[in-house]
Every structure is written in structure tokens, then in C-alpha cells.
């Protein structure tokens, strides 16, 4: 696990010598994020593999995966569209944007299209309140989104 120990150093802690290599466990989230990005979810098999790699129980991996909303045990679409539902976005009509996405994709919020191309979700504030209503398209912050922009966003990803 060479890549994990970017800085090795022996220091004294409470009278004992400790090797500080930015503890391996602290790279668990990064590992899981990589799997999520590649596979679209974290399968039981991958949880077991990760657990073996980090020498922890798979249940611990499961507990971490289920805590974070960007890590999932269900397969997500290749593209994840998250519409901000926080107050400033709601005030500027985010509900309407969700409805248009639902209609265009033929799915309800929280679902994935049959071809596995799109997942539609609502999310808490994404820090785009000055450009409300805003949408997080994969890693990209988009806003303000008008009803007419929905097609453009979807076309770009198809």
C-alpha cells in the first residue's frame, strides 16, 4: 500500500515511539470514493475486498458507506443529477425543475432510468444559492437552471 504512506515519520507520543504515516484507515473514504466513481456503487464484493485491504471488518466498511450520501450500496446511473432543494433554491422554483427532469427522464426523484444512464435526486444545499435554482450534474455545479435548460443538460450527457 505504498500510495497511502506519503509521509513516514517516527514521533514520540506519550513517551512511546509511534510511526506516523497518516494512518492507512484515513484513506478509506478515498478508496471508497474511487470505487463509487468507477462502478457507480459499492457492491458487497467490493466492501469485502476493501475490508481485506484495510484489515478491518466488512461491517465497518458498510457503516461508513451508508453514512455518506455520495457513497451508495445501490447502483447509480452513469450520470447523477442532484437538484438542490434548500430554501433559496426552493424559493426560485427548484420543485418545478425536479418535475421537468422527472418528466423528461420518465422516472421519479430517487430513481434511476432503465438504461442506467441517469439517476435523479434531491440534495441539500450545494452552495449555489446566488445562482438558484441550482443543480449538481455529476461533479459540476450548474445554475441558475431554467426549465428550458433541462434539455440542454440532458443532451450534453447522452
Amino acid at each position: 500500500m505504498g500510495k497511502f504512506c506519503s509521509m513516514k515519520k517516527v514521533v514520540k507520543k506519550d513517551g512511546k515511539e509511534v510511526v506516523v504515516c497518516d494512518d492507512i484507515r484515513s484513506y478509506l473514504l478515498e478508496e471508497l470514493q474511487e470505487i463509487q466513481e468507477k462502478e457507480g456503487f459499492i457492491s458487497d464484493e467490493n466492501m469485502q475486498k476493501t475490508a481485506d485491504k484495510f484489515k478491518i471488518h466488512p461491517v465497518e466498511v458498510y457503516s461508513v458507506v451508508t453514512f455518506y450520501s455520495f457513497l451508495t450500496i445501490e447502483k447509480k446511473g452513469r450520470n447523477v443529477i442532484r437538484v438542490s432543494s434548500c430554501m433559496p433554491c426552493e424559493m426560485k422554483g427548484s420543485e418545478g425543475i425536479v418535475e421537468v427532469f422527472e418528466k423528461k427522464l420518465g422516472i421519479k426523484c430517487g430513481e434511476t432510468t432503465d438504461d442506467g444512464n441517469f439517476t435523479l435526486e434531491k440534495t441539500s444545499c450545494i452552495g449555489m444559492c446566488d445562482k438558484a435554482p441550482a443543480v449538481l450534474v455529476n461533479d459540476e455545479l450548474v445554475g441558475p437552471v431554467e426549465i428550458g435548460d433541462v434539455d440542454k443538460i440532458l443532451d450534453r450527457l447522452k
Partner: peptide, 17 residues
């Protein structure tokens, strides 16, 4: 003798950007 500095860029409060 070993210490860390962390910058909290986890801005999540609704309405904060």
C-alpha cells in the same frame, strides 16, 4: 512533536456559498 493544520472547506449551511 507532530501536529496538523486542517482547513474546513465543508461549507454546507443552507444559504452559504
Amino acid at each position: 512533536e507532530h501536529k496538523y493544520v486542517v482547513c474546513n472547506a465543508d461549507e454546507g449551511e443552507p444559504g452559504t456559498f
